[in-house]
Amino acid sequence: QVALSRTQVCGILREELFQGDAFHQSDTHIFIIMGASGDLAKKKIYPTIWWLFRDGLLPENTFIVGYARSRLTVADIRKQSEPFFKATPEEKLKLEDFFARNSYVAGQYDDAASYQRLNSHMNALHLGSQANRLFYLALPPTVYEAVTKNIHESCMSQIGWNRIIVEKPFGRDLQSSDRLSNHISSLFREDQIYRIDHYLGKEMVQNLMVLRFANRIFGPIWNRDNIACVILTFKEPFGTEGRGGYFDEFGIIRDVMQNHLLQMLCLVAMEKPASTNSDDVRDEKVKVLKCISEVQANNVVLGQYVGNPDGEGEATKGYLDDPTVPRGSTTATFAAVVLYVENERWDGVPFILRCGKALNERKAEVRLQFHDVAGDIFHQQCKRNELVIRVQPNEAVYTKMMTKKPGMFFNPEESELDLTYGNRYKNVKLPDAYERLILDVFCGSQMHFVRSDELREAWRIFTPLLHQIELEKPKPIPYIYGSRGPTEADELMKRVGFQYEGTYKWVNPHKL
């Protein structure tokens, strides 16, 4: 086992960053958080920038500027975001240094004079007029057009580079997404736009490419001749908990499936790229999406959770019991969808996408189930092999396979070949997804960000279904809070070829 401390991990990262040409360590950078008073800024962006600063992973002359409508001070920003920093008493001095680099400007999102004030403020910072500028839009999409237009007109660096990070949702359907994309691309070049999907920053999602293309053993079996089906799962054990009003506007397909799960599907299904260059990788992902037809209604199961009468606390409440959810809402909190990649490698292999709230566990994984062994000599005792990439929690890679049961006879039983990170790298604290992705933006690497043509294809696949749901308002199937979801989803999976045995229990190697 390799035991690495946080300091050692960050030392390795620093070495990698400083050796590259793309990370300008000594240049002045300004990180501007648009929507600095909001939840995302408070819980994710400010803490992430602090962790990067604490670990010495930001360029040395980096300033952080918050911008929002609320009249706040840096002290206010500190008060609301610091509880999420997880700072230790030993880091007190470092924390003071961090907040000394912070400033805040209040202004409207659609007022040109406010942006001119913001620009004057940035120019007044040390070497601010020639600094590289990175704008993070932690804002609702309704203000994107006004904000990007004003940034472009008043706040661009004339000497350094300018980059803009856009948070999902990128529209509600193909038409609104196209409108937003066309607007942003009329102001910024594609190499300046970073559409963030934080799932692409997760260690195991990034590991998929290495697993596939750096190991000879997987190449020959990664196709329709050997793989019976692919299941991509995202499960949350909690409901909307008072935030249903926002969720109800989008629903589970827009929230998770059309982005996170579809991105994971691309990494499983794509061909080997010409290189690890950002556009070479994204070219292959677009090719996969172009091979997927629009979702067919007979390959869809929609569910909505109801309270568990035997549960406790939140578990007793259904989705419609959330006071922020519109009365009688038919918005799905669970969806199972089957897609097919219609190309030579994957023809006929079902890709089953499942996601839901208020389920029995927290889990995100990719599961490849292989065909049955031909010419069975073990009297149907063999179960199908599976390769599982567990994204969260407890990152893991393992192969479910058959071995001989101890004893006199040739009785096979299920076991696993474990390729888990935790076994080799004991207690290594890896940077989280937002840390990686923000560092990628500083480096100018777009590999783990969504390109406009990729986004367009993703919406093309799901828009007809979303429009049909909005028009017909089908009643989702009720499922109990804390269950596996509607049984109809299991029946759909069985119908397209997935075999669920229920006889195997994964042993978490992190707890051995």
Rank of each mutant, 00 (worst) to 15 (best):
N299C: 12
T330F: 12
E457F: 08
A315T: 12
Y319Q: 03
V281F: 00
T503W: 08
K426H: 08
E386N: 04
D372V: 03
L359T: 08
N298F: 10
E284S: 10
L261I: 08
A274H: 13
W506V: 03
A332L: 02
N385F: 04
K357V: 01
R345M: 11
L368V: 15
L417F: 01
K287Y: 06
G307E: 10
A297T: 15
K272D: 08
L439T: 13
T333N: 01
D490N: 14
P431S: 10
R451P: 06
Q392T: 10
Q263H: 06
V441L: 05
F378K: 00
Y481N: 13
Y319C: 02
N343S: 14
V441A: 15
M264C: 07
A433D: 02
L430W: 09
C443S: 10
E294P: 12
R282N: 02
L339Q: 04
D347P: 05
K363R: 10
F334C: 06
A489R: 05
H467W: 11
Y319M: 00
Q392P: 01
E344R: 09
E312A: 13
L302Q: 11
D418W: 04
Y434D: 01
T403E: 06
P350H: 04
N259K: 03
K400L: 03
P350L: 00
Q380I: 07
N299H: 14
L261G: 06
K290H: 10
V301F: 04
H371Q: 12
K272A: 10
A336M: 11
N360S: 09
E470K: 06
A396R: 02
Q392W: 01
F498H: 14
V286S: 09
M402A: 11
E457G: 07
Y398M: 00
F442V: 15
V301H: 05
Y425H: 12
F410H: 08
L262G: 07
M447P: 07
M447V: 09
E344V: 07
R254H: 03
E342C: 13
T316Q: 15
Q446M: 10
L492K: 06
D279S: 11
R282T: 05
S275Q: 06
D280M: 11
E457Y: 09
T503E: 12
R367P: 06
T420H: 11
T316I: 14
L417I: 01
G307H: 08
Q392R: 00
V373T: 12
A315H: 11
P486L: 06
P326F: 06
R460L: 05
G328Y: 13
V337K: 02
R456F: 07
K429R: 11
N423C: 10
K505R: 10
D418Y: 02
P323D: 09
L387A: 07
S445H: 12
C291D: 11
G422P: 09
A315Q: 14
E365C: 06
N298D: 15
A458E: 13
K473L: 11
V428P: 12
R436Q: 08
F351L: 05
H260R: 04
V337P: 01
Q468H: 13
M408P: 06
K404S: 00
V288D: 05
L439Y: 09
T463A: 06
K383N: 14
M270C: 14
Q446F: 01
E491A: 11
H467V: 09
V349T: 07
L417P: 00
H371F: 07
V349S: 03
A358G: 12
D432G: 12
F442W: 09
E386G: 00
E386K: 01
Y434H: 09
G497A: 10
L339M: 13
E342D: 15
K285F: 01
E413R: 09
C266E: 04
E416V: 04
R254F: 02
T487E: 15
F409A: 15
F498R: 07
L471N: 14
N259E: 03
L262Q: 08
V450N: 03
D432Q: 11
H371I: 08
L267R: 01
W346T: 01
M264S: 05
V288K: 03
G485V: 00
D310S: 14
E472A: 14
V341W: 03
T487K: 14
C266F: 06
D490W: 07
N308T: 10
A336G: 10
L465Y: 11
V391N: 04
Q381E: 15
N299Y: 10
T331D: 00
V366A: 08
V366M: 13
R327F: 14
R282Y: 01
Q468W: 12
L302W: 07
L267G: 06
I292W: 00
V496M: 09
T463D: 15
Y398F: 05
C382Y: 13
R390P: 02
G311D: 07
M408D: 05
C266D: 04
P464S: 13
M270R: 00
E413A: 12
E312F: 14
V496R: 15
E284D: 08
R484Y: 03
T487L: 15
R254P: 05
F409D: 12
K363D: 06
F410T: 13
M401P: 03
T333Q: 03
E361W: 00
L265S: 05
K383L: 13
Q258N: 03
D321M: 09
L262A: 11
Q381W: 07
K505W: 11
F378E: 04
C355D: 03
L387Q: 01
E284W: 04
K285D: 02
G375T: 15
H371W: 09
T330N: 13
K494A: 14
D321R: 07
V301E: 09
T399M: 12
P474H: 15
I352F: 07
E414L: 13
M257R: 03
N343R: 05
I389D: 01
L265M: 12
V496T: 13
T276H: 09
M447W: 03
R390V: 09
R484F: 03
G356R: 02
F498G: 08
R282I: 04
Y319P: 04
K287Q: 09
V349N: 04
L466R: 00
D283G: 11
G356Y: 02
A433K: 00
N360C: 06
G328C: 15
P478K: 14
P350F: 03
F378P: 07
V268M: 11
P464T: 10
R384W: 04
I352G: 04
R456E: 08
F378A: 06
V300G: 08
I352L: 09
E454S: 03
V281K: 04
Y421S: 03
V366D: 04
A364M: 13
K317H: 14
K494T: 14
G485R: 04
